[in-house]
Design a binder for these strands. Sequence first.
DNA 1: TTTTATCTACCCATTATTAGGTATTTTTTG
DNA 2: CAAAAAATACCTAATAATGGGTAGATAAAA
Lengths: 211, 211
Amino acid sequence: MPMPKLKTAIVDDHPIVIEGLKSLLSNETNLKIVGGFYSGEALLSYLDSHALDLILLDITLPDMNGIELCQKIKAVSLTTCILILSNHTERSIIMQAIQNGASGYLLKNSSIEELRHCIIEAVNGQICYSREVMEIISRPSKNELLGSPRLTRREKEILALIAAGKTSQVIGQELFLSPLTVDTHRKNLIQKFGVKNVAELIMVAVQQQIL
Amino acid sequence: MPMPKLKTAIVDDHPIVIEGLKSLLSNETNLKIVGGFYSGEALLSYLDSHALDLILLDITLPDMNGIELCQKIKAVSLTTCILILSNHTERSIIMQAIQNGASGYLLKNSSIEELRHCIIEAVNGQICYSREVMEIISRPSKNELLGSPRLTRREKEILALIAAGKTSQVIGQELFLSPLTVDTHRKNLIQKFGVKNVAELIMVAVQQQIL
DNA sequence: TTTTATCTACCCATTATTAGGTATTTTTTG
DNA sequence: CAAAAAATACCTAATAATGGGTAGATAAAA
């Protein structure tokens, strides 16, 4: 009995990429490209009236990001397989994508073979990464290495106000706190980051992308 | 007399993009794609033995960036037309590309029509941007608007030391200056940036890419 | 429910920064 | 060379930040 072809869609804001994928996958015997979409909304409205087996998804889209779109697709059609095809190499984005229902993650400079391989794995229920993505995942993130201190809600709030040039007095007034309390938080921030003063604090916080 | 087809090459580290462009441009009557390359070196060694009329070039390449490659191409073959096809929207990168010999700049999410149009303009000796790129160029850069203050050598030096968490005393010792002098520079920095204290100073300096 | 973490607030003492100046000596540049 | 810009250094006085604590209240997790 002949296997029915997987109904596949591509979502990417780059026409060139859509055309490229269509062309690359046109010879595949196990799938059929039924649509290319430039935005998340376009895909979602298509999904309202059509079933899809596989979606190749970019992270950067004009109307929403791919992570959100992942959630929405899965809410509508849980059995649809999603493969992310993106240029983003940040560990956190990869992790978020998987946690939101993606079955795999490839970089756009992946080879055709990798793409083919990941599609097969994904529709078989496996989660599959391209080689480069695998490397990114397996090495601990900078934050884990450097041990970025975890900040409490209050600390983050006060850190932002310090970075805005406000003194403990002013911050206290804005947050309805004693300036002495603000001083304590400030002190804890400096200690947690292991820095000497606010100047260094701001610098390090920016470098660690907390600010 | 039939116009000879333009010998065209594509340089991009994404196989998908190369295939996409090949497919998109396969129906064009005025050009012929003679090669797709994943790296700058690959293109350059091809150029040693073959002439090219047009090159579609990505900025991000594994071995060198597109700006450098532009220079090198022009050094070898001045008559070859170069069109940049990139995702980078930074004004400075666009400007650099043009200054290094590119005849145009398109974003990868450009439409096929824009691409076609820019190719025609470029081979006719015009410089041509896609609509979005045009907008980026015509709006003044953030720095121009905010008027980043120009800092003197000493001020930059001291700013960096402040950002490292050093006090005026310590900085004075390191630079063989009176701490009072350092205080003066610190004062001037705060004034030039129009901020309230060092915390805000560091924040703004980072945002304006001075740190 | 008990422990743990967070948020709150204060004490004391020292050091650093900020704001307002002025002023001389070097460099740079037109 | 003359003028402008930069670098140097000081004065005074007020305000802010830092380092060392302690400790009660509240909220969240085990």
